[in-house]
Design a protein around this nucleic acid. Structure first.
Lengths: 342, 342
DNA sequence: ACTCTTCACTGAACCGGTTAAGGGAGTGCG
DNA sequence: CGCACTCCCTTAACCGGTTCAGTGAAGAGT
């Protein structure tokens, strides 16, 4: 019932049991040359019998690499819980970390200052061997921080935002353009976009691309939100309250949760999707296939994206310089929520 | 452009600059008595000037407590990304960890064996000071593991599942009973439940409670799923294909994502919600308010639950024994998806 | 004037590993 | 036989903190 007091087994115990020195045990467990097969076996046997595995803490302190990767996320908890993107991304990251038997140190922060503080103290405290940076904004303070600290990172975001940092990104501009072209090809001339948080760099990129792509149309609207479903609903409601000739016939959303919210607002207002208004989601989590009608989306392998980011981080940590690169551009996946305007 | 080589500042540098010994710096930074105000100030000044903060790694090694909390989660990535519950829970946990400036070490595992291995090596490697255990099943191997290791944990699950471990749980049985009573009070006599993964302990508890509560009704169905939206859709479809007198007039879901899927299946089959069939969700994330009609749900402060779990873990870690206790039972939140049968 | 406390601080051991330098035994070779 | 060369393994310093016994000086008590 009560926990037995833990008799911490250390390298010394293993060494004693195997009849060798600490150093020998260390060599064996790091697969370094300089030990006979027989000794090696004896050491592993002793370790197994004692249930010992090396203390990562001590190992880290002694100067070898740290096998923990940091991720500080800065969005309101309310939004985070709902956004499929993050967990998907994290699970992709994890899938690669697991191969290196590394773990993810996760921290939710309230603002950029806090994130800067967290990253700095993680690194200073040798808690992490590298970090994944997300949600870049213009003049992001993390660029300078990282260079000052020499912290190995991979930045998730377009190079125009991430300074000289190694980065991995999706080509949002092209994707937005493709989305608009698709809707225009269907015959839509009045298109709106419900964007994410204005402060975020990739939102700005999408906004600019939308301006560019939709500029020639009869009507174009853009609204900034905080990515939450509520905000998506509000934005949709205000876009659709105009009388028929003045309102958009198609709406593009910056994530799928807002698209779902938009779908229900349309229903609530008595508008049929896609007959009266077409909706196009972003990211394309499973959610898009659960609604009725199903949501057309700009589809995106978020899990694979996370995995690629993690792989790149490992190459940065091991000095391989990795090199910035984009992942495949989201592709249009038409489903039931888009059609030519009535 | 290139990262400046990091000149690691250590406690020795700070001590030298402040003109004191390492020990004095340590005392100052741990707010321990035995130093004059003047010296204390001098030390903090020196530390600030050098941009030093203590290495958590070294601090941990030197025997003080570890301020990282472990969480290994074992569900398919596909489901995880979508389930609002986890991120909500995690953000609740984080909110308390942040107060203690601790972080969360997260790991997605594929099965129980892997989780057991991860927990053991985290603890052995002194990576964590304690752990949060979720998704208990009958005869859970983690109970024995924890007792063997002496690892401080808080188990999320009913005491009947978590052995002697300190646990925090929601009273699922009562909640299920309340849900059934509510639907019965509306006049429903044929009620179905789309449950979660059968292997999970809390699913079993809910299943038993439903059996008990719905036993006296004219019709009662239960289906087990994997919590995914697809499974929820399939289950709903098969429940609703029967001809009218033989099919349920109300369905309870074990999470909200399946309820959303159910809603769209009903629409696809031409059934009106709540006129033809009432739907009741579980957990009640923001998602329930984004659909049309909005989803009635058994509502639950998942964020607060996470926070309470974290608080309890800290009290276990500091030897305070914490004590197992339930959090408030989910309460019924009626919205647009439930009504008397036609 | 002498001892007793208290206070502020130092020194050194220690946590559990890694790693470079070194040492002893066995073998090959001139 | 002596020497060099390997091969295996040990020794000891070190990573960056914490902790505790101990020291020296100032002040209190008698």
């Amino acid at each position: 019932m009560t926990a037995t007091p833990t008799p911490r087994v250390t390298i010394k115990d293993v060494a004693a049991r195997a009849g060798v020195s600490k150093g020998a045990v260390s060599l064996a467990f790091n697969h370094k040359p300089g030990l006979s097969e027989a000794t090696r076996d004896r050491i592993f046997l002793a370790a197994r019998e004692l249930g010992w595995s090396p203390s990562l803490t001590a190992r880290t302190l002694a100067g070898s690499r740290v096998d923990v990767v940091g991720l500080a996320v800065c969005r309101p908890a309310r939004v985070l819980g709902l956004e499929p993107w993050y967990m998907d991304f994290v699970s992709g990251v994890e899938s690669v970390l697991a191969e290196h038997s590394s773990s993810l140190l996760l921290r939710l922060v309230r603002n950029m200052d806090e994130e800067v503080g967290v990253q700095e103290s993680w690194w200073r405290g040798r808690q992490i061997g590298g970090s994944i940076l997300v949600d870049f904004r213009a003049d992001d303070p993390r660029v300078g921080l990282v260079e000052r600290l020499g912290l190995p990172v991979v930045a998730v975001g377009h190079p125009s935002l991430t300074g000289g940092l190694t980065s991995v990104w999706t080509d949002d501009a092209t994707a937005v353009t493709e989305a608009v072209r698709y809707l225009a090809a269907l015959g839509h001339r009045r298109i709106a976009r419900v964007g994410g948080a204005a402060a975020l760099g990739h939102t700005a990129i999408r906004t600019a691309a939308f301006d560019e792509a939709a500029g020639a149309l009869a009507g174009a609207w853009q609204v900034a939100t905080d990515f939450s479903g509520d905000a998506g609903a509000r934005a949709t409601r205000s876009l659709l309250t105009a009388s028929a000739p003045d309102r958009p016939t198609a709406i593009v959303y910056d994530n799928d949760i807002m698209a779902v919210a938009g779908l229900s607002v349309a229903a609530e207002m008595g508008l049929r999707v896609p007959d009266d208004v077409s909706l196009l989601a972003w990211d394309d989590s499973q959610l898009c296939r659960l609604t009725h009608p199903t949501l057309s989306a700009m589809s995106h392998d978020v899990h694979g994206f996370g995995a690629e980011v993690a792989r790149t981080l490992f190459s940065v940590i091991t000095g391989g310089e990795g090199g910035s690169h984009p992942v495949p551009t989201p592709v249009l996946t038409p489903r039931g929520s888009t059609a030519p305007p009535r």
